[in-house]
Nucleic acid binder design. Structure first.
Length: 823
DNA sequence: AGCACGCCGACT
DNA sequence: GTCGGCGTGCTC
């Protein structure tokens, strides 16, 4: 221990593919300022990285297995106040352990993008450098080295990045080492918090009258200047700079002139970037809860009162009023003086809900999601960190919001797949949220109209408390679903058509009644692929094992995996034949077909192609809600959320493609999709119709989805999975090897497989499938999947741990353990 | 992730 | 004879 009593050693997690922490020594200059949860800059190997202090040590004890000589010093303490709270530190430690992810990477993912410090090299000229500069003859002053030295001498120290901006990237890189070796410049590493600054904004206000410079100032005003002053007076004397220029139709120089005259003052002030600024808040209806809702809420608030961990699965059909329960539970949580966190799959889909939260909780709401700018996100994050915001709504990564005194977590649409992070660090936000609630003695509500099988299973086994809301608010009837057997349609017509007579007739009726319809087809583009009738060639992606989808409006063939794009050929690339045939249909074609059938109806399309533009999704939804659109065609994104009272017809064009996917959850996904979209119909007074076109009317996922019969679907799905040995009776791990070289991919897979076999001797796990073989090529990467299952998750995890320790290939293998057996 | 160390093929 | 391929192992 040193004199101040500060532990001289710190344990640091680095955000790299290493699954251990490392011990560093605190230099005297930092002394006892270092705290757990602070970021540090350390030399790791040869590189400079941002690490995170995860523990302090008084001495190097033997358990650390480090030689004092090997311990390096911390280079820089980035935070005087730790950014990472003890709760988040503990949560990330658990995630790192549970999902076999490097702790440092999890910590990095837990901080808002703007707060992850970049390490920059800072250049400064030395005394020798100045001497050299003075010695340089004038005619040589234009060499690159001289330019850099002069710049540093005149402008002071700057980052390599800044120097490169002026002098060129490659050119600067070439001379740096040489200048340093000559001793003319110094290069120091420094952590830069660039993006994480508070936003400053310029405001203009009228100066008090006695400060006006000249008594005749008013006479000298130009027309533009007068407009500026009038605008300011109208706004009670103050406006943001940019808003003033707009309102007064004045330029910045006009305002500058007024400032010189002393008539206005310009000042920069810190402002909060508010993602909800300027939105209209909806009036708050005073909704009376029905009996089922009241009972559900009572159970939840009772758990909140106890301040102990409690988990609920809230299984409420669409329209049963789950949202109202969330809001009341949050309110109850706030009344206890605690904070609430709500996770949603995709915040763009909940603009209405975000506003409602704001209307309820005002400034105490913070919003976190990926399309916020780094600055906005950082501001919201800091408001949470400082406990100014006590209600947080956000997508997957909001799980890590540094919420103080967490009392309630709500995971809406808990079955949604976007809670699963698909890249390192791999984790499932819903399950990690359950763990967070557990650790922080909070109540958690998992809500869905179509619970995931694993959550329902957990509710059945008593791990979660089950609350069922089987009825719609106000006793409105559920839509009645009808299956249309497309084989019969084909037999009748003798040719293939995307839209059945039944669906066309139903559309006709709906339009005649001036009501609205939703048509779902979970495939974008115009045609599935292009087939050569002469030689059978299907035009595929050069990078992936899939066919290219034809997009008519863009006149392009697109790969939906890697976004590869090419122009549709006039002739077959293989045999030069002109007999190219468009096979299958996507949303684009359905839209065309509908326009042809119903030329007077107003149709619109909603899929990833039409919503690439920011806010396009919201605009279309608003137009549909205002009945400016009669028929809305779209992919699964139209199946979520939103009340459209005038929608009385939902058509599902083809659900069969989803059933054929090589995914053991294919039936579950199809069931969920149909159920979700069926919930869109008949929310008003009229009972809605749902027409489902399929070539497999006997499939249980379709049958039970039409009957809105979750319990029976669940039983069948369990049987099915049992037969294949899939969850929920087993924990399933998927190890994905990806490599751009096929031979290498196979080699690595074989090696990993051998390691698993060896490690498995006493683990009671079963490796599924034959010897490793490539399953697909996507984005140029050959993929090989190894599946392992076990009765207990823990044994599966330790097996993988052992195998990976043996191959040390973890950073190049993605591990996904089916998140079933939690805790 | 980077980077060094080390052991086998095609070249000045 | 050497340059360079990437397999393997390590980073406090």
């Amino acid at each position: 221990m040193n004199g101040q009593g500060a532990p001289p050693y710190v344990e640091v997690a680095v955000p790299l593919g290493v699954r251990r922490t490392f011990t560093y020594r605190l230099p005297l200059a930092i002394g006892n300022a270092a705290q757990v949860g602070a970021r540090v800059r350390v030399t790791f190997g040869k590189q400079q990285v941002t690490g995170y202090i995860v523990a302090l040590h008084d001495e190097l004890d033997r358990a650390l297995e480090v030689d004092a000589r090997e311990v390096r010093e911390i280079e820089e303490l980035i935070d005087a106040e730790p950014l990472i709270t003890p709760e988040i530190l503990e949560l990330t430690r658990w995630i790192s352990d549970y999902y076999l992810a490097p702790w440092g990477e999890v910590l990095k993912a837990a901080l808002p993008a703007g707060a992850n410090a970049r390490i920059e090299r800072v250049l400064a000229i030395t005394t020798e450098g100045r001497d050299e500069l003075a010695r340089l003859p004038e005619r040589r002053a234009l060499t690159l080295k001289a330019q850099l030295l002069r710049m540093l001498a005149e402008q002071g120290p700057m980052t390599v990045r800044q120097a490169q901006r002026t002098l060129g990237t490659a050119r600067v890189a070439r001379i740096l080492a040489e200048l340093e070796r000559a001793g003319w410049i110094s290069i120091k590493h420094q952590a830069q918090n660039a993006a994480a600054r508070a936003k400053r904004r310029k405001f203009v206000r009228l100066a008090p009258i006695e400060e006006h410079a000249a008594p005749d100032a008013a006479r000298a005003l130009t027309a533009a200047q007068t407009r500026v002053i009038e605008a300011l007076i109208a706004a009670d004397g103050e406006l943001p700079f940019t808003e003033l220029t707009e309102r007064a139709r004045a330029s910045a120089s006009t305002i500058a002139t007024l400032e010189r005259k002393g008539i206005v003052k310009i000042e920069a002030r810190e402002v909060r970037r508010d993602p909800l600024a300027g939105v209209e808040l909806p009036p708050l209806p005073d909704i009376e809860l029905n009996r089922a809702q009241r009972e559900a809420l009572d159970q939840i608030t009772a758990a909140l009162d106890q301040r102990r961990y409690a988990a609920f699965l809230l299984h409420g059909i669409t329209g049963s009023g789950k949202t109202e329960i969330y809001i009341r539970a949050m309110r109850a949580c706030l009344e206890h003086g605690r904070s609430a966190l709500m996770l949603v799959p995709e915040i763009a889909l909940t603009p209405v809900f975000s506003r409602r939260l704001r209307a309820h909780f005002g400034d105490r709401v913070a919003i976190l999601h990926s399309s916020l700018s780094a600055g906005e996100r950082f501001d919201e994050w800091m408001r949470i960190r400082r406990a100014e915001a006590r209600v947080v709504i956000g997508t997957r990564s909001a799980l890590f919001a540094p919420v103080q005194d967490l009392g309630l977590i709500v995971v809406d649409e808990e079955h949604d797949t976007s809670y699963r992070q698909q890249e390192s660090p791999f984790y499932h936000a819903r399950d990690a949220a359950v763990m967070r609630a557990h650790k922080e003695r909070a109540t958690i509500i998992l809500g869905s109209a179509t619970p995931s099988l694993e959550s329902f299973h957990n509710a059945q086994t008593g791990k979660y408390r089950y609350i069922h809301l089987p009825e719609r608010v106000g006793g409105r009837p559920l839509a009645q679903a009808e299956v249309i057997d497309m084989r019969a349609v084909f037999a009748r017509r003798g040719r293939e058509e995307a839209l059945s007579d039944e669906l066309l007739e139903a559309l006709e009726e709906t339009l005649a009644r001036r009501e609205q319809a939703i048509i779902l087809l979970n495939r974008r583009g115009y045609a599935n692929f292009i087939l050569c009738r002469a030689c059978g060639e299907r035009i595929g992606c050069p990078q992936c094992d899939v066919t290219l989808t034809y997009h008519k409006r863009e006149r392009a063939l697109l790969c939906h995996y890697c976004n590869f794009r090419r122009r549709p050929p006039a002739r077959c690339p293989m045999c030069q034949s002109q007999h190219l045939h468009l096979v299958g249909e996507g949303t684009e074609k359905i839209e065309d077909l509908l326009q042809a059938h119903f030329p007077r109806a107003r149709t619109a399309r909603l899929d990833r192609d039409t919503t690439a533009r920011r806010r396009a999704y919201e605009q279309t939804i608003m137009r549909f809600a205002a009945h400016e659109i009669d028929i809305l065609v779209g992919t699964q994104m139209i199946a979520k959320g939103h009340d459209f009272p005038k929608v009385t017809l939902v058509g599902v064009v083809s659900v069969d493609a989803g059933l054929a996917l090589p995914d053991f959850r294919a039936a579950e996904r199809t069931f969920q999709l149909i159920t979700q979209v069926a919930g869109r119909a008949g929310r008003g007074d009229r009972r809605g119709r749902v027409l489902i076109q399929t070539y497999h009317p006997e499939h249980y996922a379709i049958r039970f989805a039409c009957a809105q019969d979750y319990a029976n679907f669940y039983r069948h799905e369990i049987e099915y999975r049992k037969a294949f040995g899939y969850p929920p009776f087993f924990a399933l791990a998927s190890l994905l090897i990806q490599d751009d070289d096929l031979g290498r991919a196979v080699k690595r897979a074989e090696k990993l497989r051998r390691a698993l076999d060896r490690a498995n001797r006493d683990h009671n796990c079963r490796l599924l499938g034959p010897a490793p073989a490539p399953i697909a090529r996507l984005r140029g990467q050959h993929r090989i999947q190894i599946l392992a299952k076990a009765r207990r998750r823990a044994s599966l995890r330790s097996l993988i741990d052992l195998a990976l320790a043996e191959t040390d290939d973890l950073d190049r293998v993605s591990v996904e353990i089916d998140p079933l057996h939690l805790m």
